[in-house]
Structure formats: C-alpha cells, structure tokens
C-alpha cells in the first residue's frame, strides 16, 4: 500500500515537472522516467504484459521519437501565452474537472464485487479462461484471445501511425 502511494507520488512530481519545464529535451527525458515508474505500477497490479509494453514503448520508442521530433523542430518551448489565455484555459480545465468529479460520485467503490464491471464478463474470464484459451495469465488471455480482433485493430492503428511518422520525419533530400 505504501509502495503504491510512493509510486503515484513520484508520477505526480514527474508530470508537474515535465509541464513546467521549458527545455523540451528535458521533458522527453523526464517522460522516459515517468514510463519506467508507470511500468512498475502495472507490474504491481499484476498486469505484466501491459508493463512490458509501457517500458518498451513508453521509455524506449517514445523517447526516441520525441528526440527525433525535437531534432527536426527546435528545442526550446515558446514564450508563455498571455494571461488572458491562461484564464480561459483555467476556466475550461476547472469546469471539466468538476464534471468528472460529479460523474465519479456515482461510480461504485474501488474493488466492489457487486459493481457492474465485475458482474458482466469477469466471472466467466475467471472461471473459464484457463481451459478455454490455455493461457495462465488472465489479462493476457483477455487481450490476446477474447479480444484478439480488438488487439489486431490496435496493432493496425499503431502500424499506420508509425508509417505516418516515418513519412513526416524522413529527410527530403535523401
């Protein structure tokens, strides 16, 4: 429990620091650290394959892509926006936060066994996934077998995005 709280505290500190930093390269470096801590959090929740993806994509590939983007653009962030924009943005953010908090008031308690999310298909996964799919890890069974077509679609989206990035970042005169 204390481990979770400390990990989440580190995440919040890194996120705030990354927002306030003007050096975009430093932001990219900090976000790599963010992904590493996030991966530990996933592992602590027993979602090992999600943690794997987070570490390799978040800490590895995303940082490299951010640096590639910085090397094609510029390293410093522009001067801060005028005060009027900040006020407008604050109003929008506070209003949407209020809406989210209002929606959360109706949410079931964390880990409530009678919550709709735990009543619908979760019992079937818990009881049947081991001998229906032969995969011992339940999260992996859901991702790769029950929702295999979803994962295939996600892979297609990520492949398309990667192709677009290659086209954008490629040098013209080669």
């Amino acid at each position: 429990m204390a481990i979770d709280i400390l990990l989440l505290l580190i995440l919040v500190i890194i996120a705030i620091a990354a927002i306030h930093m003007k050096d975009l390269l430093a932001c990219g470096v900090l976000l790599g650290g963010y992904s590493l801590i996030m991966a530990v959090l996933w592992t602590n929740l027993n979602a090992v394959d999600v943690a794997f993806t987070e570490a390799s994509v978040g800490a590895g590939i995303t940082t490299v892509l951010l640096i590639a983007a910085i090397s094609r653009t510029k390293r410093r962030e522009d001067d801060p926006s005028p005060f009027r924009h900040k006020v407008q943005m604050s109003i929008i953010v506070l209003a949407s936060t209020a809406v989210f908090v209002f929606a959360l008031l109706d949410a079931p308690n964390f880990g409530d066994p009678n919550a709709p999310a735990n009543q619908h298909v979760a019992p079937r996964y818990i009881h049947e996934s081991s001998h229906e799919t032969g995969v011992l890890n339940m999260v992996t069974a859901v991702l790769a077998s029950y929702r295999g077509y979803d994962t295939l679609g996600e892979t297609t989206v990520i492949f398309t995005a990667g192709m677009c990035l290659v086209m954008l970042l490629r040098r013209k005169n080669e």
Binding site: L25, G28, V29, T43, V48, A51, A59, I67
Partner: peptide, 20 residues
Amino acid sequence: DIALVYALINFIATIAILKY
C-alpha cells in the same frame, strides 16, 4: 525475468539522447 528485460531496454533512450 522481466527485471532482466528491463535492464536490457533501459539504455535505448539514453543512447538516443546522447547521440542527439
């Protein structure tokens, strides 16, 4: 095993930054 794999992929971002 996972910890070992993390140790293996830990250096990619560092190499990219230093190359930049």
